[in-house]
């Protein structure tokens, strides 16, 4: 029983971080139909920039995190300006290819600046173990869950109520029609990429706090795919629930069946979901009027 609770907590926290990387992914897909293969690298950059701010520059963590968010937003805007804007009007598949190139570029940039060695990270959220129902779990891991839920709330309200949020969904539905009502598609894309980079940066900072920084953090990018396929590429709640489900699955298989299988299982789920519900559990179905 103790093992079960322990695994559940680990799974939930891993899931929460996966969900945060997935949120940005979903956001970009919702606004521009682009599958961003560089999402994992956004997380990586977030982790390393936080590391630079806190460990190398020695800033207070509030200021450091704010600056990290600033860098993330600037990164999002830069990607939109330099990479995506010239691609407007090109087929979506070309844009997706560009994001693959972007992911290699960002990864190379990180290892050029910070090297390839994993580094210890001065925790800004206390990581002392806390006892819950007999299981022990780091306090920072619990914060990951809280922050993920908080982000889910903010995003849901943003997309349902705010003008920019509705405009973003409108652009995803029909770009030209959105253009005809004065919605600037370029601005919306810049918004989407900045917010995506910022959420990934928060996720990155949390991961860095929990496990330290290292180039293997980009591997999160790959693990995001089962999450978003499960939850639906364009669903915000789907990203969170998908994240938690994949996180739990990984933890349970790792704990009960054996390490190794838990690396593979998410992708087995991915294939199953693609066969049964290709648009995911919560994704939009394609509306056809007959």
């Amino acid at each position: 029983m103790d093992l079960f609770i322990q695994l559940t907590l680990t799974g939930l926290t891993n899931g929460a971080i996966l969900a945060m990387a997935a949120l940005g992914f979903v956001l970009i897909f919702k606004a521009s139909d682009v599958i961003n293969f560089a999402q994992g690298e956004f997380l990586l950059i977030g982790a390393y920039v936080t590391f630079a701010m806190l460990a190398q520059l020695g800033l207070h963590w509030t200021l450091g995190l704010l600056l990290t968010l600033g860098v993330a937003v600037a990164l999002g805007v830069a990607v939109e300006r330099l990479v995506l804007r010239p691609m407007i009007g090109e087929p979506i598949i070309s844009v997706i290819m560009v994001t693959i190139g972007l992911s290699s570029l960002l990864k190379a940039l990180v290892s050029a600046i910070w090297g390839n060695q994993p580094k210890a990270f001065p925790p800004f959220i206390p990581s002392q173990p806390v006892k819950i129902l007999g299981a022990t779990v780091g306090e920072d891991r619990l914060w990951a869950i809280v922050i993920a839920i908080f982000m889910l709330g903010i995003f849901s309200v943003f997309f349902r109520r705010s003008r920019e949020g509705i405009a973003m969904r409108a652009v995803a539905d029909d770009q030209q029609a959105a253009l005809s009502m004065g919605i600037s598609v370029k601005k919306i894309f810049a918004w989407a990429w900045s917010i995506a980079a910022a959420t990934a940066a928060i996720g990155g900072a949390l991961v860095a706090n929990i496990v330290g920084v290292g180039p293997e953090l980009a591997g999160f990018g790959l693990r995001v795919f089962p999450v978003v396929i499960l939850g639906g590429l364009d669903s915000i709640p789907g990203a969170i629930i998908g994240g938690v489900v994949i996180g739990l699955l990984e933890a349970y298989t790792g704990g009960y069946i054996g390490q190794g299988l838990n690396q593979v299982l998410p992708f087995i789920v991915l294939i199953l979901i693609l066969m049964i519900r290709p648009y995911g559990l919560f994704g939009q179905e394609i509306i056809e009027r007959v």
């Binding site: 509705i166 969904r169 409108a170 029909d174 030209q176 959105a178 005809s180 009502m181 509306i287």
Partner: peptide
């Protein structure tokens, strides 16, 4: 008002109207 209606299919009717008032 574009030819062929071009409503935002996945938005509700009211959200469509709000999108129209974007500016």
């Amino acid at each position: 008002v574009m030819e062929g209606r071009r409503v935002f299919e996945h938005l509700t009717a009211e959200e469509n109207l709000l999108a129209g008032g974007y500016t």
